Simulated assay, not measured.
Amino acid sequence: MAEGKESRPLALHARIEREVEDRILSGEWPPGTRIPFEHELTAHYGCSRMTVNKALSELVRKGLIERRRKSGSYVRQPEVLSAVMEIHQLEREVRALGLAYDFRPIESAIRSADAADRRRLMLERPEELLHLRSLHVAGSRPFCLEDRLINLAEVPQARQTDFSKSPPGTWLLEQVPWSAAEHRINATAAGRAEAELLDLREGTPCLVVARRTWNTTGSITQVNLTYPGDMHTLVAQFAPSGRPG
């Protein structure tokens, strides 16, 4: 009786799938790369188009590539999973995907809160605030558009802080204690300004996470984080309330 079974060679479609997957996961083919056309893979592997199609269909199922009509197959941007009940640093989310991170400030202004600002921060009177807009980039693709208000009555040190190179969310988490936070999540269509900054078509579905944090004396910050809808998923994990009877 044989001591073990000889490993069987992979079926050709599985070999094609594995080799393409290896190139994607190793970073050799980063997000946005067009992989060889079906006829090119057919010629390279000396097989039928049906075999190549079977391999690519499995890669689509795994979420590694997307097929575009008349254009070919492209490596997909990895989807980000974020816990709804936690505050994450955007840089950490991007680097967890194995992608280069870049932060690009757009606007910074100190002004008195208007009625809309007061609603966002839930202020009773028109406090002075810092308004920041910035873009977070993953690899070569815009990842998230940040629109943030910081209440200078609660965070006066933000007035002298240079946010041109450091993301304000990271600075706030490291420097400013907070006692509670609220997330509001909704879907929206990208307006002209958002679409231009996120490199999308106007009207493209986006996911907006609106977050406010506060302490025992008042609101600290309110931020609207706008993500392209095809690259972000929010996850909530919870347990049954109460005790089993």
Rank of each mutant, 00 (worst) to 15 (best):
residue 97 L to V: 00
residue 98 G to M: 03
residue 100 A to N: 13
residue 102 D to A: 14
residue 104 R to Q: 08
residue 107 E to D: 14
residue 113 A to K: 00
residue 113 A to T: 05
residue 115 A to D: 05
residue 115 A to P: 01
residue 116 A to R: 04
residue 118 R to I: 02
residue 123 L to E: 00
residue 125 R to T: 11
residue 127 E to S: 10
residue 127 E to T: 12
residue 128 E to Y: 10
residue 129 L to S: 01
residue 130 L to C: 04
residue 131 H to R: 14
residue 131 H to T: 07
residue 133 R to M: 11
residue 135 L to Y: 08
residue 136 H to S: 06
residue 137 V to Y: 03
residue 139 G to K: 14
residue 139 G to V: 06
residue 142 P to N: 14
residue 143 F to L: 02
residue 145 L to C: 02
residue 149 L to N: 02
residue 152 L to R: 00
residue 153 A to R: 13
residue 153 A to V: 09
residue 154 E to F: 09
residue 155 V to M: 11
residue 155 V to E: 05
residue 155 V to A: 15
residue 159 R to Q: 06
residue 161 T to I: 01
residue 162 D to R: 07
residue 166 S to H: 01
residue 170 T to A: 03
residue 174 E to H: 08
residue 175 Q to A: 03
residue 176 V to H: 07
residue 176 V to N: 11
residue 178 W to D: 09
residue 180 A to M: 07
residue 180 A to I: 07
residue 182 E to T: 15
residue 182 E to F: 07
residue 182 E to M: 15
residue 183 H to Y: 06
residue 185 I to F: 13
residue 186 N to D: 09
residue 189 A to G: 14
residue 191 G to Y: 11
residue 191 G to P: 09
residue 192 R to G: 03
residue 193 A to L: 04
residue 196 E to I: 10
residue 198 L to F: 03
residue 200 L to V: 07
residue 200 L to A: 03
residue 200 L to M: 04
residue 202 E to Q: 10
residue 205 P to N: 12
residue 205 P to W: 15
residue 207 L to W: 06
residue 209 V to S: 15
residue 214 W to C: 12
residue 215 N to Y: 12
residue 216 T to K: 04
residue 217 T to A: 13
residue 218 G to H: 06
residue 218 G to M: 10
residue 218 G to F: 10
residue 219 S to M: 04
residue 220 I to D: 05
residue 220 I to A: 08
residue 221 T to L: 01
residue 223 V to M: 09
residue 224 N to T: 05
residue 225 L to N: 05
residue 227 Y to P: 10
